[in-house]
Design a protein around this nucleic acid. Structure first.
Lengths: 221, 221
DNA sequence: AAAGTTAATGAACAGTGTTTATTAGAGAGG
DNA sequence: CCTCTCTAATAAACACTGTTCATTAACTTT
């Protein structure tokens, strides 16, 4: 009897409808102003219904944060295929910064807000370790790229993880200083341009300049 | 008649009492759980009273964020006196990271939360541009240090502001990835150690290594 | 058709930030 | 000393918030 499968499907569709409405509101109004009651209104159900599909608001927003990573990955796909690992590094950085620039609310949810980690913590205790999959994947992409750079002697840092933390922290720092409006506060003109310029500086610095490149390629043992 | 001066003083003292109670709660319970009613309870006044001294919650927390900068500056004082600008740069970075590590709630309020900037925006429209003084001062300290490094040909970036954004973004990125628990998510072991190591890497990279130092000092014109 | 199951809800609870009409008390003037 | 004024403090209310739970309505199975 396919009735159970249909019910399962309907439940899934309902979850989807809730998430869709929540995203719509979230992107338009921000996290704080996206209330359960507003979401319920948008899908024309009662607020209590949402709690039949999500444990609480944190879990709902944990589901939303997945969508953000999907967008990030689809933007990252092209960059990740760049052959030269150092060029790839730059491309990854550019895509990451552009994603933060174009989707500040998503970026906030994925890398700044506490809601998704709180939801994850509870799941973790309940055994279901779905992990912070998206974040993991993108960080590993960065670590692997760094490792390739190290293997090919393209950069001046010898520990891939440290290099990855360096790069991630830099772009994340710029993204959040922009999103949370601290660049305005110190009167940085044209933050978009500055962010890309600074990313270029990072690449130049880790590469070690023409001298170091020569040194790396040339040998010295 | 000194009665008006006394009243003025009493008003100031009341503001102080409110801020003190708010800080106490804020550091113990976090921003969201620090409600006007709880603050009012702590000082044994009614919630409405607080609105006689602060326009709204944002303005109250804008006042608190000043205290954070005071702590940061007193920690920064010694570091800022380091003679060699490159050593000073490292010290500033260390102190900054340590401040974020030791005072995560303050750091959050000063560099991540939206509340203080929202309060500032309203003031700005009302003519009173008290500015984001603390942030400005610390950023200028960084820019000036970078300029000294450039003047003494110690670093490989030629625009002080860009170098400052690079350094600030890096340490801010590490601080926030830690505070908002994203380092845990990608399973970084010993984040405190990693953060300092990465800061050292930055210094090494901008310095340009022994070769570049030699090149800078030696001349080549 | 009756029984069992379950999805949906109205209403309530406990909290939030904020506003306003009212009250109690201190300071000034006669 | 007694009014009168002014103002600091408040109780109560408003419009929200996330969340829970007993009740209802509808669908499925017997």
């Amino acid at each position: 009897m396919g009735v159970q499968e249909r019910k399962q499907r309907e439940k899934e569709e309902m979850r989807e409808r809730i998430i869709e409405a929540a995203i719509e509101l979230f992107l338009r109004e921000g996290y704080d102003k996206t209330s359960i009651r507003q979401i319920a209104d948008a899908i024309e159900y009662s607020p209590a219904t949402i709690y039949l599909y999500f444990k609480d608001k944190d879990e709902l927003f944990f589901s939303i944060h997945h969508r953000g990573f999907e967008i990030l990955f689809s933007a990252m796909a092209a960059a990740a295929r760049t052959q030269n690992p150092l060029d790839r590094l730059r491309e990854i950085g550019r895509v990451y910064l552009q994603f933060a620039w174009d989707n500040p609310e998503f970026y906030d949810l994925m890398f700044v807000m506490r809601a998704p980690v709180l939801a994850l913590k509870e799941r973790f205790q309940c055994g279901l370790d779905s992990e912070w999959q998206g974040g993991m994947r993108s960080f590993e992409l960065l670590v692997n790229t760094m490792q390739e750079c190290i293997d090919q002697k393209l950069i001046r840092i010898t520990l891939a993880e440290e290099a990855a933390v360096l790069a991630w922290s830099l772009v994340h720092g710029m993204a959040t200083l922009h999103i949370r409006e601290r660049f305005n506060m110190v009167e940085i003109q044209d933050p978009h341009h500055t962010m890309n310029t600074v990313l270029d500086h990072l690449i130049d610095l880790v590469r070690g300049g023409a001298d170091s490149l020569q040194w790396a390629v040339g040998g010295r043992q």
